[in-house]
C-alpha cells in the first residue's frame, strides 16, 4: 500500500481527517523548506503538499503567485524540489509527500526522468493542475511504473458522469476544488461542498481531500466534517509573508506558519469528536 493510501486508511480507522498543508518549495528561501516540512509534521500535518515553483502559475491567487516568485528569485527548480524531499526523507520515512505544480517543468524534465527521480527521492504523488484526465495518459503511465500516485482535481463544474472517469485514472485521493476560482479565494460554501462530496462518494471509493478557500480553524472544521482531507495553502503562506513584512526572519516566518497550522489542526480534530 502506498504511503498516501496507508495514511488515509489509518486516519479513517481513527475517525480522523487528514490535514494537508501546502507550501512552495523554496519560499521564502530554499534553506527553509526541509525544516519547515518537519515542523509542519510536528504540528499535526498528516500529508505534505509541496508546490513546485513555476513562472506562470495560472490557477493561483495573489498570495501563492508571490510565493512562486520568491522561490524563483532563488532559482528553485523542479529538481531542487525533488532534492528537498530527498533530504526530508533522511529523517521522516512515513509522512506522505506530494508535489503539486504545472505541466511544463515536468514535461521539460521528461515524464520518465521525473518519475524515476521523484520516486527515488521518496515523493509519493504528483498533482499537475493543468493536466486534466484527457492529457494525462503519458504521465500516468510513468507514475504508475514508478509506483507513484496521480492526484486529480474535481471541480464544482465537473459533470457527474465525468467524476467516475476522473476517479478511474486517479489514485491516492481525489482533490476537490471547493470553489470556482483561484487558490486563496474567499467564497467557500461548505453546504455545497458537502453535497458535492456526497456525489463524489457515489462514483469513487477514493478518499476526498478539499482545497482552495480554507483559511482558518473554523472553515477547516466545517470541511473536515464532510471530507477525508483538508488542504491549507494560502493562509499559511500569507502568515509567513506577513511575518517577514513585519521584519521577522525565516524562523519567525516558520513560527507563524506552524502556529496557524496548530490552530487549524485543533479545528480539524474537533470535527472528528
Amino acid at each position: 500500500m502506498s504511503r498516501i493510501a496507508g495514511c488515509f486508511t489509518r486516519l479513517a480507522e481513527a475517525g480522523q481527517t487528514a490535514l494537508i498543508p501546502y507550501v512552495v518549495a523554496g519560499d521564502p528561501g530554499p534553506e527553509v523548506t526541509v525544516e519547515l516540512m518537519h515542523r509542519l509534521v510536528a504540528e499535526g500535518a498528516d500529508i505534505l503538499e509541496l508546490g513546485v515553483p513555476f513562472s506562470d502559475p495560472m490557477s493561483e491567487g495573489p498570495v501563492i503567485q508571490l510565493a512562486h516568485e520568491r522561490a524563483l528569485a532563488h532559482g528553485v527548480s523542479l529538481r531542487d524540489a525533488i532534492g528537498m524531499v530527498r533530504r526530508f526523507r533522511e529523517q521522516d520515512d512515513s509522512t506522505p509527500v506530494l508535489l503539486m505544480g504545472y505541466a511544463n517543468p515536468v514535461e521539460h524534465m521528461g515524464y520518465a526522468a521525473f518519475a524515476d527521480a521523484a520516486s527515488a527521492a521518496g515523493v509519493d504523488a504528483l498533482l499537475t493542475v493543468d493536466i486534466p484526465p484527457e492529457e494525462a495518459e503519458p504521465v500516468n503511465r510513468e507514475l504508475q511504473r514508478a509506483g507513484m500516485d496521480n492526484i486529480f482535481l474535481v471541480a464544482p463544474t465537473t459533470p457527474t458522469e465525468r467524476i467516475a472517469r476522473i476517479a478511474e485514472r486517479a489514485s491516492g485521493f481525489l482533490y476537490y476544488v471547493s470553489l470556482k476560482g483561484v487558490t486563496g479565494a474567499g467564497h467557500l460554501d461548505t453546504a455545497e461542498v458537502a453535497e458535492r462530496i456526497a456525489l463524489m462518494r457515489q462514483h469513487s471509493s477514493l478518499p476526498v481531500a478539499v482545497g482552495f478557500g480554507i483559511k482558518d480553524a473554523a472553515t477547516a472544521r466545517a470541511v473536515a466534517a464532510v471530507a477525508d482531507g483538508v488542504v491549507v495553502g494560502s493562509a499559511l503562506i500569507q502568515a509567513m509573508a506577513t511575518a517577514l513584512e513585519q521584519g521577522g526572519d525565516h524562523a519567525a516566518a516558520m513560527d507563524a506558519a506552524t502556529g496557524l497550522l496548530a490552530e487549524i489542526r485543533r479545528g480539524v480534530s474537533a470535527a472528528a469528536s
Binding site: 505541466a103 465537473t158 476522473i166
Partner: peptide
C-alpha cells in the same frame, strides 16, 4: 477530436474550465 495538431495543442487547463 482532442484538439491536437500532431503532438501539439490539446487542453492543458485546470479541471474547473473543462466543462466550459
Amino acid at each position: 477530436a482532442d484538439g491536437r495538431f500532431g503532438v501539439y495543442g490539446g487542453k492543458f487547463v485546470a479541471e474547473t474550465l473543462m466543462s466550459a
